Amino acid sequence: MCWGSIWKGGAIFWVIGEGAKFWLGVISALKGRGVEDIFIACVDGLSGFSEAIQAVFPYAQVQRCIIHQIRTSLRYVVWKDQKAFMADLKTVYKAATREEAELNLLNLTDKWGGKYAIAVKSWENNWAELSTYFDYPPDIRRLIYTTNSVEGYHRQLGKVIKTKGAFPSAESVRKLFYLANCDITSDWTMPIPNWACILNQLSICFKERVTI
C-alpha cells in the first residue's frame, strides 16, 4: 500500500502500512513537519484513520467520503434494485439541510431497511462523519464531500509503478514517486473555483482559529 499527503509545494509518501497505530504515526509526522491545525479532514473510512486525526488534532472535523460510502452501500443491493435505491439515497446526500437529509434517511430506512439492512445501516452507523458537510455553505461542501481528487492523484502514482517488476528498497519507490509528483503537479495550474469566497467562508466558520 502507498499513501501520500500532498499540498502546494510538497509531498510525503508512506510506502506501506494501515491501522490506527500507522495512521497515528502519519498524522503525528504531519504535525511535526509544521501542520498547526486541521479544520476539516476528508477521509475514506479506513480503519483507525478518524481516531488518529482527532487524537493529534482534537478540534478537527471529519467528513467521510460520500462517493466511497455510496459504492460500499451498492455492494449489498442487487442490481435490479440499485437504480431505485440510488434515487432514494440521493435525497439523503443531496439534501439542502441536515434536517432534510435525516428525514430522508428515515424514509430510506423505512423503505429499504428490511430488504437491505447492511446498506442502510452503513449510513446510519456512520452518519456523524457522513453529514459534516451539511454544516457548511455549498462552495465548501463541494470541496469536502469526496476524496476523489486525492484518489485521482494516487491512481496517477499507481501507473508509474504498475509496469515495474520489483524495487530494491522502499527508498527507491519514494524517489520514483517524487519524480512522478513533480510531473503530476506541474499540470496543476488552475485555481480552485471561488477560492477567495471559500477563504472568507472558512474565516467565518473557524474565526477563532484563522490567522490572517
Rank of each mutant, 00 (worst) to 15 (best):
V62H: 04
P58H: 11
C65K: 04
S47W: 00
A29C: 10
W23Y: 15
A29F: 11
Q63Y: 10
I66F: 00
W23H: 08
I38R: 10
F49Q: 05
I53S: 06
A41K: 07
C42R: 07
V56E: 09
F39E: 02
C42S: 08
V43M: 09
A60Q: 03
V35L: 15
R33Y: 07
K31C: 05
R64P: 02
S28N: 13
G25Y: 09
A55G: 07
W23M: 00
C42M: 09
I27E: 01
F57Y: 14
S28K: 15
I53E: 02
C42N: 04
L30Y: 06
I38A: 07
Q54V: 14
G34C: 06
A55I: 01
A55H: 12
V56I: 15
S47K: 15
Q54P: 04
Q63I: 08
S50F: 02
L24C: 11
F57R: 05
R64I: 04
S28Y: 10
I67W: 07
I67M: 08
V26C: 09
F49D: 01
L24H: 15
R64Y: 08
G32S: 09
V62A: 03
I53M: 03
I40G: 01
Q61A: 07
A52R: 00
S28E: 13
I27T: 05
W23P: 01
C42T: 07
F39H: 12
V62P: 02
E51F: 03
Y59R: 14
V56G: 05
F49C: 06
V26D: 00
G48W: 04
I38C: 08
Y59T: 13
A55Q: 13
F49K: 01
A29T: 14
L46T: 04
L24S: 14
G34T: 10
V56N: 03
L46Y: 03
R33S: 13
C65H: 06
V43H: 01
A60Y: 04
D37V: 11
E51I: 11
A41L: 00
G45P: 10
Y59D: 13
D37Y: 15
P58E: 08
G25C: 08
F39K: 08
L46D: 13
A52C: 01
S28I: 07
G48F: 04
G34A: 05
E51A: 13
A52Q: 00
A29N: 11
Q61R: 14
V35K: 11
Q63S: 09
I38Q: 04
Q61Y: 08
V35M: 13
K31Y: 06
F49L: 15
I67N: 08
W23G: 03
V26P: 00
Q61H: 10
E36F: 09
A52V: 00
Q54G: 09
Q63L: 03
I67G: 02
V56C: 07
S47Q: 14
E36M: 12
R33H: 13
A60E: 03
W23K: 03
V56L: 00
E36G: 12
S47R: 14
E51H: 05
A29W: 03
I66G: 04
I27R: 05
R33T: 10
S50C: 11
A55S: 14
